[in-house]
Amino acid sequence: MVSNRSDWRAEHEDILREVGNIGAGHAASALSALLGEEVKISVTSARMCAFNEIADAVGGDEVVAAGIYLRMTGDVHGNMLLMLSLPSAKQLLRRLLPGQQETLEFNELEISALAEVGNILGGSYMNAIGTLTHLTLTQSVPAVAIDMAAAILDIGILSAGEVCDEAILIDTVISQGKFDVQGHFFLLPDPDSLTTLLCALGWCT
């Protein structure tokens, strides 16, 4: 068990990072097209992360953030979460919905626009994985929550939580030139789908 885990750390994190890189590339170009501005990818990392540390990636347990959740089904099952800080979400909305009056709250139109961003980014991510692996993947309708980061992340780590105390994070920070919209993209394959995913990437055991 222990050796399996360390093998996983040593080798498979590299593959997942590669998946992350390609997915992030697709997502960035889709977002660039959506905003009419060049979007850059500043960091991508893939790692195993204890549940307790996940929220730190987005600034702490109780920091209020916007979360967009997509469920991935098909050959590989998993959860996808795009997390945006509130200023980043507002910045993005300023570009997406010009002329809207700025409020602290998020109205229905803004929530729907954020869901669409999640849809596009999630879709790009999944297409990248699908193309790379020849797996058939589909995504659910996006769902949006504006709340404490840790509370939003609960849902992402749940299915991983059935069998282990850590989650796989493919964490992508996307920033948009002078507008500096940053988001973390979390891809959390279900544990029983991880083998399928790694095998499709050429790492059959």
Binding site: R71, V141, A143, V144, I152
Partner: peptide, 16 residues
């Protein structure tokens, strides 16, 4: 015991 993503209630995961 909240359902954080109320709009997508179709899956068991979201109803946890």
């Amino acid at each position: 015991g909240a359902q954080m993503f109320a709009s997508a209630g179709q899956s068991d995961i979201l109803r946890v």
